[in-house]
Design a protein around this nucleic acid. Structure first.
Length: 490
RNA sequence: CGGGAUGUAGCGCAGCCCGGUAGCGCGCUUCGUUCGGGACGAAGAGGCCGCGAGUUCGAAUCUCGCCAUCCCGACCA
């Protein structure tokens, strides 16, 4: 057990907060609600970025960059969109500071008021669609497949590192298509990329689904999502892909001439994942000993710790460590050989364990004598002595096993915490206990709202390819054709 | 924006009732012994006690005001 660190059972929220800070992932900043992402945390984000970026490019998307500031007037063009974001926008009103009259401080220069206020982007649909109008004239300009990596600001009341911060990093894809079908296909393609990334890189099993009208993105016709289940039984939306119909094209007058020489509005999608994925990654796998990272996203996959008394021993151990490191690096594995003399081996063990490094190799005098190394895996905390022969292949295989094991563990957890209920009493009871709760729903917004008010649970998703079955709404008793997933969520 | 709590060394806290030289643990620095799961000893460094007024011979401590942060709610990726 790590020092001064609560267990999940004692206090899950505290466990998460402490973990993020003590594992050196991020910190609160001088700015309320905004975080500092520290090098170790940012290294994970960079791996997430690199992987997704390649996936986007492999499917024909290009990166671009649009302004941080959006003229206020743009927001009023799409009515639903305004309503969705108005309450959490940061607004720039002035462009100059000056010395105060007493010369002691800096104040806003009231003479430097902006003609039109600028909104710090909470998302970029408006500025992007205003730009797309000038880019798109013909069906030959389509599809337009753009992604941007950016920061956005949503002025949240209550914030939590990675899960909800006032400023966060994300990618937002914005595409334009000639046909409705093509746009819908795009949202599905992206949803599959997200699900593939979540499951095969983050080792987090997700459910692909569609959002209920209440949970839909402001301005979208349909919102698709991937939902993950955290260890405390709460759901976390890990990514969204929106079919925007012609809403933004109409609002920003983006038309194109088709092959048949007919003028029509283009069809749109937008989709994104954010630094919130870091929260999902942390909460999905970590334990009471600290962070557990899937090998594919761990900044350090293997750490080598020497155990020695005298300088001559260290020299011998270092020689062996460097051989191992070289062999592993040749296989594309990221290795850190920590030969710092300033910390003790035990201290290092605890440190790397807490930071979730998947594999630790310890080499001591005994190993030099026997031609072995001690290998410890973070996910199971098991230690084993390996012969040096084919050490690179053994470690490579071990990393694959760990990735696999972490996913399976998360998958069984979800399976054990997924429930089907038919009565309102069962429903309330199970929601209180946590997990994904499948229940019949009459399809109305009013029922969803009422359930939310009474239990704090929302519809997380209506799964894609959901089995159709006749039933009665768990709340209203009205007829229903399928069960949907309810849960409390982040 | 409502309800609750807290601001004292880098971090975590005690001291405050009952005013009188600002303390403990961790961390940090130096030296020595240690080194296969967070070592031990010795010697050090480090404070506008959140900010501003007031009461008092004297305020971390009492009074008033302000500010900030955290937790719990309403809002949300």
């Amino acid at each position: 057990m790590a020092k001064d660190f609560p267990t999940r059972a004692e206090n899950y929220a505290q466990w998460y907060n402490d973990l993020v800070i003590k594992a050196d992932l991020a910190d609160n900043s001088a700015v309320r609600g905004c975080m500092v992402i520290k090098p170790y945390g940012y290294a994970i984000w960079e791996k997430i970025q690199a992987t997704l970026d390649k996936m986007f490019k492999d499917t024909g998307h290009s990166n671009a960059y649009f302004p941080l500031f959006i003229p206020k007037s743009f927001f009023s063009k799409e009515a639903n969109h305004v309503e969705g974001f108005a309450k959490e926008c940061a607004v720039v009103t002035h462009y100059r500071l000056k010395k105060s009259d007493d010369g002691k401080s800096i104040v806003v220069d009231e003479d430097a008021k902006l003609e039109e206020e600028l909104i710090v982007r909470p998302t970029s649909e408006t500025i992007i669609w205003d730009t797309y109008r000038t880019w798109i004239q013909s069906y030959r300009d389509l599809p337009l497949l753009i992604n941007q990596w950016a920061n956005v600001v949503r002025w949240e009341m209550r914030t939590r590192l990675f899960l909800r911060t006032a400023e966060f990093l994300w990618q937002e894809g914005h595409t334009a298509h000639a046909t409705k079908d093509e746009a819908i296909e795009e949202t599905g393609k992206i949803l599959n990329i997200y699900a593939n990334f979540a499951e095969n890189w983050m080792a987090v099993p997700v459910i692909k689904g569609v959002k209920s009208p209440n949970e839909r993105f402001a301005g979208a016709v349909e919102t698709y999502c991937i939902e993950a289940l955290m260890q405390d039984g709460k759901a976390l939306q890990a990514g969204t892909s929106h079919f925007l119909g012609q809403n933004f094209a109409k609002a920003f007058d983006v038309k194109f001439l088709s092959k048949e020489n007919k003028l029509d509005y283009v069809w749109a999608t937008s989709w994104g994942v954010s630094t919130r994925l870091m929260g999902a990654l942390i909460m999905a796998h970590s334990d009471d000993n600290g962070l557990v990272l899937p090998p594919k996203l761990a900044p350090i996959q293997v750490v080598i710790v020497p155990i020695y008394k005298k300088a001559e021993q260290l020299a011998e151990i270092s020689e062996k460590a460097e051989i191992i490191k070289k062999a592993l690096v040749a296989k594309g594995i990221s290795v850190k050989y920590d030969d710092r003399d300033t910390q003790k081996p035990g201290w290092k063990f605890a440190e790397y364990e807490f930071k979730g490094v998947p594999v630790r190799i310890a080499i001591g005098p005994r190993d030099i004598e026997n031609g072995t190394v001690e290998v410890a895996r973070r996910d199971t905390l098991e230690k084993e002595t390996y012969q040096m022969t084919d050490i690179d292949i053994k470690i490579e295989n071990l990393l694959v096993q760990i990735q696999d094991n972490i996913y399976k563990k998360a998958f069984s957890f979800r399976a054990e915490n997924t429930f089907h209920v038919d009565t309102w009493d069962e429903f309330k009871d199970q929601i209180e206990k946590g997990g994904f709760v499948f229940a019949h729903w009459d399809g109305t917004s009013e029922t969803e709202q009422a359930i939310k008010e009474e239990t704090k649970a929302t519809i997380r998703a209506i799964p894609l390819n959901n089995p159709q079955e006749e039933g009665k709404c768990v709340y209203s008793g009205k007829p229903s054709k399928e069960k949907v997933i309810f849960a409390k969520s982040y």
